[in-house]
């Protein structure tokens, strides 16, 4: 399993490659990225592509905004920038908007397109939708469990697509993150004392009061149990996450090729620490599998990773 890491500054490139990243990705101002943390301009991004290549790694560019441009001129500008990145040797574009995929495939862009988890692909028909644009890698959304992803993984293999998952320790939106309107106040309004942060990730540990409405007659006992669960979960991070040590090993066993870390706002030292931790985890899965075979290795892997998590 190979590693792909975000970076947000050119100074992070060398330490991240040294830590074990095989691919690095970033965006830059003027490109349609899901988050704005990135390089200040196209010039910096083009120089970063050169630097990454000089260190023997691959350079990806995130253009994974769901809403890429708000007019035709904006789309033409993105296409022109994509062409300059292609000419510089960029190794992949991470994309989410079908309109951008259509623009790139119609505009003759040959750089491999990676389908972002921001545009969730939960099934083989969705993958067929993206194949029309020439997609070359699927970044699996963390809301899909490995035991649900078998057909999807098989279709990826048959079509020659690479597959990628997020490291469960460092990322984990429970809501479909490209569709989350709770995260930022686009429709609702925030209280005066709100100090910023993600509205969708309450983690204060205090249950919220949940008052049942629209109650089905005769369901009172079920309502009580659900009320406790909703109150606790809405105050402490949301619904259960699918990704954990077990699902990582299952995706590993299914032949997932790439492991991603993508918190672009983390400080450099934190990024380096996490890439090292990813390398250690992927290495552990490989080592245990080679030594014990998949069934026993899975159990040992989970035990070991769970202990790590408790430290």
């Amino acid at each position: 399993m190979r590693l792909v890491s975000c970076y947000a500054d050119r100074s992070e490139i060398a330490p991240l490659v040294k830590a074990g990243a095989d691919e690095l990705y970033a965006s830059a101002r003027g490109l349609p990225s899901f988050t704005q943390a990135g390089l200040p301009d196209m010039r910096s991004l083009l120089l970063a592509v050169d630097e990454i290549h000089s260190l023997g790694a691959k350079a990806l560019v995130a253009m994974n905004a769901v809403r890429p441009a708000r007019n035709e001129a904006g789309m033409r500008t993105i296409l022109a920038r994509a062409r300059s990145l292609e000419a510089r040797g960029a190794d992949g574009f991470i994309v989410a908007a079908p309109s951008l995929m259509s623009l790139f495939s119609g505009g003759g862009i040959k750089v491999p397109l990676h389908i972002s988890s921001v545009q969730p692909c939960f099934n083989t028909a969705a993958l067929r939708f993206f194949l029309r644009f020439g997609a070359k890698r699927l970044i699996l959304p963390s809301q899909l469990a490995p035991r649900e992803a078998g057909d999807l993984m098989r279709l990826c293999r048959a079509e020659g697509l690479e597959t990628e998952i997020f490291d469960y320790r460092f990322f984990g939106c429970v809501y479909v993150n490209g569709r989350c309107n709770l995260h930022f106040p686009r429709f609702h309004t925030v209280k005066r004392d709100f100090n910023g942060g993600s509205l969708c990730r309450l983690s204060g540990g205090t249950p919220l009061k949940a008052a049942p409405v629209d109650i089905r007659p005769g369901a009172e006992e079920q309502v009580k149990a659900s009320a406790r669960r909703v109150a606790l979960r809405m105050g402490c991070g949301g619904a259960p996450r699918f990704y954990n040590a077990a699902t990582f090993y299952d995706f590993f066993g299914m032949g997932t090729g790439w492991l991603k870390y993508g918190t672009r706002l983390d400080p450099t030292a934190e990024k380096v620490r996490k890439v090292r931790a990813m390398k250690a985890m992927a290495g552990l899965a490989e080592e245990l599998t080679a030594k014990h075979g998949a069934a026993e290795a899975r159990q040992r892997f989970i035990e070991k990773m769970t202990k790590w998590e408790l430290r």
Binding site: P146, K191, P212, R216, S226, E309
Partner: peptide, 27 residues
């Protein structure tokens, strides 16, 4: 951490009711 879910386990709890709640940061 040892569970690899087969999907979204469901007993149709949502059919029993919805819940209104107050978010500490949202009006």
């Amino acid at each position: 951490p040892e569970d690899s879910p087969a999907g979204v386990a469901c007993r149709r709890e949502c059919a029993a009711c919805a819940f209104e709640l107050s978010h500490p940061s949202i009006n």
